[in-house]
Design a protein around this nucleic acid. Structure first.
Lengths: 198, 198
DNA sequence: AGCCTAGAGAACAAAGGGAGAACGGGCAAG
DNA sequence: CTTGCCCGTTCTCCCTTTGTTCTCTAGGCT
């Protein structure tokens, strides 16, 4: 993937937060948020990010908005299958694509899974919901992950690393947390978005 | 996608609010509402909005009404504000738009509200989630509705018509269902989709 | 020293944003 | 019909904000 300096990653992270809901920030606002005092310096970073492959959005020239070149506002992502707690991902016979708004998309490669069962119902993920998963092999504590246990069972759980063990928390009082040696669990992706249709 | 300056977004937001309820405002009224003192300045903004792709409605030449050329409403829906159980919808200072995939959209006119509070948490709608609401004045039993009680309090609840009474069910064991005479409750829309970002 | 990176700050052009005056068309009261 | 009023439109003049480019400085590094 792209390799960015700390500052650049920081800027991109900030923009990503803003991007979603609020108006695109001006250079000055980004400066204030990141503790910079000079627009000029920020602008240099922005140019570096553009050189690294990002695209400046916002045709009017005002407001700072960066996105990946392939990021249409509403791109389709592949629906890889259904995921149910404790079973391998059930592949769909026929590839489907789902339009996913950009704010629900992850940074890197992403895909969609349809959730089966109610093992995450206490966290607001219900049977039939779609989750947008960013492909990643590591997770931070507290993130919702798609994890493969013993190369067999894919499951959707909250991730917690506890020493040399990984604890996978379901979000339903009816199920108990599961504890595995770290090398038995392989993170396949992190949930970054969720959608439901009524 | 549309990219507007702040002022432009503000104007469009104001017009959208009016659009629903009252007559199309005159330029002077918009000026007063936004704290402008010159029609001329406002008019410049209106032209900018038209240049950005909006269409002036109201053939009589009087009154200010803007709408999308109706090829575009596919992509984005307006975010009208936040909704919390038992409070009027809190309008957003500045009009925002959110890309909503077509499968989450309703049939008719739709908009987006951001949910505040956990009164629907047992149904998988959490604090901060976006719900897509289709504007409708009637609901069927069991549907999730945005309802206005006594013309004052907008709330997100499950709808049930019981004889001459309407029962509004929250989905959190900590809150009790509410029962009103049918004429006190006005349905404003029905939830057809939901999105969340992690 | 040289080279590099971050950052600060000045200077500039372009765009945003606003005030106010003036013109002209429609409309209703006189 | 004339008159006055409302309202959209256009115009000129102004200030502020913002993106961009520039030079200069302070450190870290080989």
């Amino acid at each position: 993937m792209l390799d960015l300096s700390r500052r650049q990653a920081e800027i991109l992270g900030f923009l990503r937060e803003r991007d979603a809901t609020e108006h695109a920030p001006t250079l000055d606002e980004v400066c204030a948020a990141l503790g910079l005092r000079s627009r000029g310096s920020l602008h240099k970073h922005v140019r570096a990010l553009q050189a690294a492959g990002l695209v400046r959005a916002g045709a009017n020239g005002r407001g700072l908005q960066l996105c990946y070149p392939d990021a249409d506002p509403e791109e389709t992502l592949p629906v890889l299958g259904r995921i149910a707690a404790g079973q391998p991902i059930e592949a769909i016979d026929q590839q489907q694509y789902l339009a996913v708004p950009s704010i629900l998309r992850g940074r890197g490669q992403s895909y969609v899974l349809q959730v089966e069962g109610d093992s995450m119902s206490d966290e607001g993920i219900l049977d039939g919901d779609w989750v947008v998963v960013e492909h990643r092999e590591t997770a931070r504590n507290g993130e919702l992950v798609v994890a493969l246990v013993d190369d067999e069972n894919a499951t959707l759980k909250r991730f917690q690393l506890d020493g040399a063990e990984v604890v996978l928390h379901p979000a339903n009082a009816a199920y108990a947390p599961q504890r595995y040696a770290a090398d038995r669990v392989q993170v396949q992706g992190v949930v970054v978005g969720q959608m439901r249709r009524y």
